[in-house]
Design a protein around this nucleic acid. Structure first.
Length: 214
DNA sequence: AACTCGGGGCA
DNA sequence: TGCCCAGAGTT
């Protein structure tokens, strides 16, 4: 990257995103931290829509960690069929539920270091839980956010963690959750990884990547 | 840093 | 068919 991208003011980009996706919201319907945690683990490499379909029944049948640990890995795997990586997820979720029961009284811990120790929970999932369940400022950087933010020059880094730091610095805290969802929507609908639809992208005028494509 | 897990949706 | 999906763990 020889020429440093001339950065469009963050506020301007955020305002435009807000106009584009006024009602962006979290599509994962969760009723408590436990459901959020499990749904977020399940969401890895899977579409949020599929996760919603699967979790709707799942949480009806098994609302608590106590219910989950009654299941074998194979039984849980059968319950979450329809999502990718379901064997890994089944194993991780059962292990996580056991830890919740043994170490945290069946509750979801609210500290990052505790969350990231849970099997199946990494930086991104921990951030989702922290920001949505515990109202702790944490910007979850997934592949969409990372890609879109870098194309827009909201961030300038190959590494998700660095992107997270930069975004955290530049975006006002109160806007984190909504901005996160808007970047994801944009990333899925327009700013896709392989064939981004720059031609009818409403952010093209302020997008460093888009302008260098044409 | 690269590799693996992985079935389903969609063009 | 080929490509992609709200990543994490292991080597």
């Amino acid at each position: 990257m020889k020429n440093k991208p001339k950065r469009v003011p963050t506020k301007k980009i955020l305002n435009t995103l807000a106009e584009l996706y006024p009602d962006a919201h979290c599509e994962l319907n969760y009723r408590n931290p436990f459901e959020l945690l499990i749904a977020t683990i399940l969401s890895a490499q899977s579409t949020d829509r599929q996760v919603n379909i699967v979790t709707k029944e799942l949480f009806q049948k098994f609302p608590t960690p106590e219910d989950f640990v009654q299941l074998t890995e194979d039984e849980l795997a059968a319950e979450i069929r329809g999502l990718g990586l379901y064997r890994n997820k089944s194993r991780n979720i059962l292990a996580t539920c056991k830890i919740l029961l043994e170490q945290y009284g069946g509750k979801v811990p609210s500290q990052r270091k505790d969350l990231e120790k849970l099997p199946g929970v990494g930086r991104k999932t921990a951030n989702v839980v922290l920001s949505n369940a515990f109202d702790v400022p944490a910007l979850a950087v997934d592949t969409h956010v990372h890609r879109v933010a870098n194309r827009l020059a909201l961030a300038d880094s190959d590494q998700p963690l660095e992107t997270e730091k930069q975004l955290t610095k530049r975006i006002p805290k109160k806007d984190w959750t909504l901005t996160h969802h808007r970047l994801i929507w944009h990333g899925r609908r327009v700013c896709s990884a392989r064939n981004p639809k720059c031609h009818h992208c409403d952010l093209l005028a302020m997008c460093w990547y888009g302008k260098n494509q044409a």
